[in-house]
Design a protein around this nucleic acid. Structure first.
Lengths: 235, 235
DNA sequence: GGGAGTGGATTGTTGAACAATCGGCTCCCG
DNA sequence: CGGGAGCCGATTGTTCAACAATCCACTCCC
């Protein structure tokens, strides 16, 4: 998994320089996306220092442009900026986990209660649940994690609000950081596939309040387990 | 209200250069804040083009630093960046108003339903309502607008989540842009002071579901009126 | 009168320079 | 031998100046 999917390549004509959208258009956002992917993928684990000069020449962009990308990522809490010290890949603590779940406990049930339950949206949710169950039976843990995140993202998208979907995406990115912190990630998602299925069935039946309540309980226990594992395993 | 509160002054020794936090620490965020205030205050009305070179020398910062501030503001949807064309003060259209209310209709009632109703929080809400009523009786329209925004911000802060509070702050900033678009702002807020009072009373009585439902209805009508006025007066 | 072509202005990006600050090292002193 | 003050190198924060790419408006030609 080292080549092919990753858009490696800066503007210049040097080393690994290919597949960049265009020379004179948005290198900043492109760069931010590259870093996002590398961080989510687990290389650049939490706590890693991102030195400006080194990274700039490795990615073959100017220090200025790299700085712009840092600004974006720091606004997303994916990266932490310490004045005069540098930027580091965010290293979520217990408080960060609590904040993540505070957000999720608000916007996910809200979307269930008040979002627009169109037929295609419901079908989409069921499709995702199907994939999660398939991954479960195949023992494909990363696949389950993926499907799980997609499901919760799809739930929020019921609200029909790009703003809230963005917030949820960023929150899920922070979740990935939390998982990256725990080197031995137990199969957190195994137990949740079933819960997700029940959730979508409640939605299909139109029982929104019940679904919202169940989701809140679900998020409560998930937060608790995560905090436990963080206490025991996370440094 | 032209001097004293505004932190005018860049790094150099030139013209209006005073009261800057520190030379070698965060001019970017400081600059973003200056622009935010100028935009919210109504100078730099929606649609204004923010030319890099002109603004840079007027504020006595480098074009690079100004660019960083633009990045921040564009992430907040306060400013719109058009590639190779420049940045403009955001000019909210009907769709933007709908998006604003989609967000508010989710997170405000959610905070009412599931936020933590501490005694000091309730007292804070009541205090804001008091100020709004006072402003109403004094005919102080800007004061009412202020209190109104503060109230809704305080509602969301019941969720206890910095992330959601930030989202709400940015959403309220976009609301201010909408009002700035409508040169003849009628007394939108007059009718809402009373509704706000009822809302807080319901909360005090512990009737959260009722409060949430009322707030959603409130937001619906507010959105409708805003869209009407935008159709008739906007542009 | 309408459309292609051209010139000027503005943005996107880079590179290098300098000041400020931090961390670690050495050296001195008790 | 231990501990703290002071210095040095490395990194970050900010600015300046240059160049390429793009767009807008104007002119000119048909």
């Amino acid at each position: 998994m080292a080549e092919g999917t990753e858009a490696q390549g800066p503007p210049g004509t040097t080393a690994a320089a290919r597949a960049r959208p265009a020379a004179h258009a948005h290198t900043g956002p492109w760069l931010a996306q590259v870093l996002r992917e590398r961080i989510s993928a687990g290389e650049l684990p939490p706590g890693t220092k991102l030195a400006e000069q080194a990274l700039a020449e490795q990615l073959d962009v100017s220090r200025n442009t790299l700085r712009e990308a840092f600004g974006t990522l720091s606004a997303e809490s994916i990266v932490e900026r310490v004045p005069n010290r540098g930027v580091f890949v965010a290293k979520p603590e217990a408080e960060d986990v609590r904040e993540i779940y505070r957000v999720r406990r608000m916007i996910e049930p809200a979307a269930l209660l008040w979002g627009e339950l169109t037929e295609p949206a419901l079908a989409g949710l069921e499709e995702i649940v199907g994939r999660a169950v398939a991954a479960l039976e195949a023992g494909d843990v990363p696949g389950m994690a993926d499907a799980n995140q997609q499901l919760h993202g799809a739930v929020v998208s019921l609200a029909g609000s790009p703003t809230l979907s963005t917030v949820m995406d960023q929150t899920l990115a922070r979740m990935r950081l939390v998982f990256n912190r725990m080197s031995d990630a137990p199969d957190f998602h195994t137990a949740y596939a079933e819960r997700n299925r029940d959730l979508v069935e409640l939605l299909r039946a139109g029982r929104r309040e019940k679904a919202a309540t169940a989701l809140r309980a679900y998020l409560d226990t998930a937060e608790g387990e995560l905090l436990d594992h963080l206490r025991r395993w996370g440094r």
